[in-house]
Design a protein around this nucleic acid. Structure first.
Lengths: 145, 145
DNA sequence: ACATTAAAGGACAAGAATATCTTTTATTAT
DNA sequence: ATAATAAAAGATATTCTTGTCCTTTAATGT
């Protein structure tokens, strides 16, 4: 199994794609995004609808419409996308799925996974949606294939 | 989403349960294990069949039969269970699901996730199946609820 | 106003993961 | 040998994830 659901992988890649296009003041349509991140167009549409409802991205309908990201939202952390799509189990859940796992009643992997979860949290909470814009524009980072 | 699939959570908990019972020279039946780790009995049966076929655990049929773990297998790493059930995407896959992600063609999270994957690998490859036997016997660690 | 464009929304379909049920096979004790 | 036990195996059911299709709504340009 992967760290993120497939839906979440698409979501992150799409948001980063929209972000670096938005930095140029451009809105992007669903076809453009789907091609830009190699994802099924109609499924991605559903995901973006959801992210739009949740305020992570914005959209306008009609000619010259499309998806974009508010300047202020570029400083939101990537964790916002993950939480919106996959929930917060990755940040707070027990690795072995125990509801009552805690310091008092730890599962065998409790201590070791705490460190890993903390590192994952640190990464996703401190990395912003706009953090990769320059490198994406420069073509130094990949979002497809 | 959680780190492991539900199937894998059951698998790890069951194997650790079997391990610490095996340390006492006892075989344990599926009912016992399912109750001991709070899992659906018949589903767990399927998982253990699979682990048995893959040589991670052993079993004997008939009266006084049940599941057990060879002494030598107690020193196998937990990663063996994870790989058998969830595959190795957690250890080697790209966080954003890109097939071609690498140093040459990195996804935006490539570098940061490499560190996290390495830590996960380190934990799962160096922690053995038998590592928690004493604490489990002493009731200091939980496998259910 | 009207036609065109593009996202939103609702419904549906396919596939995978999770869970259950029933029959078969192997082992043990009598 | 036979009966009882317990895992293996095969079949089926349910739920969740992923993916597609079709209609509706909102915005724009003419």
């Amino acid at each position: 199994m992967a760290i993120f659901s497939k839906t979440c992988e698409y979501a992150i890649r799409a948001v980063l794609y929209i972000a670096h296009k938005s930095a140029l003041g451009k809105r992007v349509g669903i076809k453009d995004i789907a091609a830009g991140i190699d994802s099924p167009e109609l499924y991605l549409a559903k995901i973006l609808q959801d992210l739009s409802r949740k305020g992570i991205i914005s959209s306008v309908k009609g000619p010259n419409g499309g998806f974009y990201i508010e300047n202020g939202s570029l400083s939101k952390p990537i964790s916002d996308i993950v939480e919106a799509v996959d929930g917060n189990a990755l940040f707070y859940g027990c690795a072995l799925g125990l509801k009552q796992c805690s310091e008092i009643q730890p599962c065998p992997l409790h201590d070791q996974f705490k460190a890993i979860r903390d590192q994952i949290k640190d990464l996703l909470f401190t990395t912003t949606i706009g953090a990769f814009n320059q490198e994406l524009l420069a073509g130094m980072l990949a979002l497809k294939k």
